[in-house]
């Protein structure tokens, strides 16, 4: 196998911590953008969160939205430019907490955008606070005794929730831990772009991703911990695939 840097990825080192899934996700998206030949008509919206600097890493046009507002920004971009390919890239604090209203309504309108949703079960950038997706009993700086349903509610199952909406054409959950799962994630990312290109509706790919620093684990330990703990609360696989 010939392993090279995708054209859609810039030749720079990222600022991500060891074991973090953001770099892997960036690369998978870049590979698919190249494969589909859409680099020159792709417009991306970076989130507020650890991936805010994504515009320094991808080799296509990228902007940044206010915290959580990426689906609304993408709506404006895509509606005014039906010939472009538009995607958002969002963390769980961004998409599921502060931006819950924007993603739900963009999905409900069936906006022709692809959404790549990094679920690392915490607010990575701001030092590991609880996210809506923080797992039961997981300790974070704002759930120091571990997340309990009584005070903190349940982990939010975002793709299952969005799959309920008729505007969502494709909803899938993948994990960035093993080579097999990463290959499946790449295929899902490709599908999410194809759904947009076919004009079918909103496509969302949830990518379970390790945050070793936020979880207080060593990189390898954190990635290993995903299978079982994380996938038990967030089952992998296609939740919805609408063909038209």
């Amino acid at each position: 196998m010939h392993y090279t840097r995708p054209t859609a990825l810039q030749d720079v080192a990222t600022h991500y911590c060891a074991g973090c899934g953001h770099g892997v996700a960036h690369r998978l998206i870049a590979e698919v953008v190249d494969e589909l030949g859409i680099r020159e008509r792709t417009l991306a919206v970076a989130p507020v969160g650890c991936a805010v600097l994504a515009y320094d890493y991808w080799n296509f046009d990228v902007t940044e939205a206010a915290h959580g507002r990426a689906p609304a920004v993408a709506t404006g971009m895509r509606r005014c430019n039906p010939d472009k390919v538009v995607f958002t890239y969002q963390g769980d604090g961004d998409l599921a907490a502060i931006g819950a209203g924007e993603i739900v309504n963009a999905a409900n309108r069936g906006e022709l955008i692809s959404v790549f949703f990094i679920n690392n079960a915490t607010y990575g950038m701001t030092g590991g606070q609880m996210a809506p997706t923080t797992m039961l009993h997981q300790r974070t700086t704002t759930s120091p005794r571990g997340r309990e349903t009584r005070a903190e509610g349940w982990p939010m199952k975002v793709v299952e929730m969005l799959a309920q909406l008729d505007g969502t054409a494709y909803a899938v959950r993948c994990a960035l831990d093993t080579p097999k799962n990463i290959r499946a994630a790449r295929a899902a990312i490709k599908k999410a772009f194809e759904v947009q290109l076919a004009g079918q509706g909103l496509a969302i790919v949830e990518l379970l991703s390790a945050c070793p620093v936020g979880w207080g684990m060593k990189p390898v330990e954190a990635i290993k911990a995903m299978a079982g703990t994380m996938t038990a609360q967030f089952p992998l696989g296609v939740v919805k695939q609408r063909e038209k």
Partner: peptide
């Protein structure tokens, strides 16, 4: 919140 963000998205593309 969404309305002004949509405006921003459109404006980003020169609309």
């Amino acid at each position: 919140l969404a309305a002004i963000s949509m405006v921003m998205g459109a404006a980003l593309t020169g609309a």
